[in-house]
């Protein structure tokens, strides 16, 4: 599944990043790397963007960005 499908309050592990070029760099620099744990903290009132906890910082990503991150939900 991709990150945008992760429900609020759930945590997942990053499996891969599909974004390219600058966008990929940006994601990687935020610490989104294979193996990184990401938690869906909350969605904004209009549903998009969603705030994720990534390596202890809460960072909002738009849906288009979350769609390009492959994750596996933690049990």
């Amino acid at each position: 599944m991709t990150l945008n499908m992760l429900k609020a309050g759930r945590t997942a592990t990053v499996k891969g990043i599909y974004s390219k070029d600058t966008e990929r760099r940006r994601m990687v620099d935020l610490g989104i790397l294979p193996g990184t744990l990401i938690e869906n903290v909350m969605a904004s009132p209009l549903g998009d963007p969603v705030a994720y906890r990534i390596r202890s910082a809460v960072i909002a990503l738009r849906r288009e960005q979350a769609e390009l991150i492959e994750v596996e939900e933690e049990g």
């Binding site: 600058t22 760099r25 940006r26 620099d29 935020l30 610490g31």
Partner: peptide
Amino acid sequence: TYSLLSTS
């Protein structure tokens, strides 16, 4: 900045 490697 979070990093010195990005492009902003």
